[in-house]
Design a binder for these strands. Structure first.
Lengths: 211, 211
DNA sequence: TAGATTGTTAATCGATTAACAATC
DNA sequence: TAGATTGTTAATCGATTAACAATC
């Protein structure tokens, strides 16, 4: 049951399963991979294989016990959870991420934002935004291990360097730049422009087929 | 040179090449795939293969002509460009996306945002935000084909339905919900919670190795 | 037993990498 | 010619799908 290598696609599906399982009526105790597959319009074999990775509670003929399965998926996903996370840059994007509803849903939490403005503020949802000068002490005190970069492109590398100095181990970068970091830092760049381009391309190639 | 099927990974690399090529000194006229690979820390064969997909200007012994290669990549990427795009929801996230620097870099543009607030406003960068009541007429007039959803989870499906009614062909969804659409609509859900989880998992599995 | 379901083993597919032939 | 580089063909790898055996 160890999370060896988990692809993002698998994570995506697991969170779909979780949502679906939780949305089922109270009195539904057992569920088969086939039923889940049908509901989510996925291949049944794929669902079965995914579930086997996560749980060994599947019983022939009756399928999986719902509560047990939910617990197993959550356990698998949250094996890493509780990793303290903060955001640098509390403009529109930073505040949006601080208050993002999807994190809470998945048991995730971004602790605080940091910004160049001097006063401590709060987001609409009540998350604290501290002046950036407090970054180092905060990271030390709370053992912050993931830093999100939501500053403009020109200050992204500086923010990144500072996070690395603070001992952060992973960086999630929303600024449209290629960051340079020491090799032992995990960097994931979101690259929204590429995502939008991908959508456009998909659209135009589909057009070629259809018309 | 037709864009048949382009994976997101390939798009990502192409935009890396483009950035790199543009950042080279003026007087650099020729460049080899090997040199690009070394600079970006990628495999040389992979770069060569990517470039071959995009351009047939590669010459043995001397490599690619830089300007020609830039033009070929841009052409390949922008084959679909000019697809009109708008955003529904102009809270923090919506405004952040409207003003996102990375889009302009890549020749992309989000035309406007729409929000439940009644008055027409502008973002910091000057993008217009219209009352949602104008959505239909705007989409018709400008032939909008991509809609971005940046509203809270509870109103995402409604926003989606409305966009579909407006004739939008693709939806880029940032709300943490699974949308239901007619089959001919292309939907890409961003699922930030899954991305953050992926980062955490990667971190924790790495830990197991290291320690 | 028969049927539903799981888990396993083999086949397919796409993307990446390696080995090599072609050529300026 | 020799060397650098490209493009091509084959090998590998991971993820998905298909076929099947196991079992309650």
């Amino acid at each position: 049951m160890e999370p060896h290598k988990i692809s993002k696609k698998l994570l995506n599906r697991l969170s779909l399963y979780l949502d679906h399982l939780k949305s089922l009526p109270e009195d539904c105790d057992n569920i088969s991979a086939t039923a889940i597959a049908k509901a989510l319009e996925l291949g049944d074999v794929q669902v079965r294989k995914d579930l086997a990775k996560v749980s060994d509670g599947g019983r022939r003929r009756t399928g999986h016990r719902r509560q047990r399965l939910i617990a197993d998926i959550e356990n698998y996903l949250s094996s890493a959870s509780g990793t303290n996370t903060i955001i640098v840059g509390a403009g529109n994007l930073g505040q949006a991420l601080l208050d993002y509803g999807g994190f809470a849903n998945s048991g995730l939490d971004v602790m605080a934002g940091f910004d160049i403005h001097s006063a401590t503020k709060r987001t609409k949802a009540g998350k604290p935004i501290y002046p950036i000068s407090k970054l180092e002490s905060f990271c030390n005190r709370y053992d912050v291990r993931i830093g999100i970069i939501a500053v403009p492109a020109d200050s992204a590398q500086a923010a990144c360097d500072r996070l690395v100095d603070c001992g952060v181990e992973a960086i999630w970068n929303f600024a449209p730049v290629q960051l340079t970091t020491p090799q032992n830092i995990v960097v994931h760049s979101e690259n929204l422009a590429v995502s939008l381009t991908a959508l456009q391309v998909q659209l135009s190639s589909r057009e070629r087929k259809t018309s």
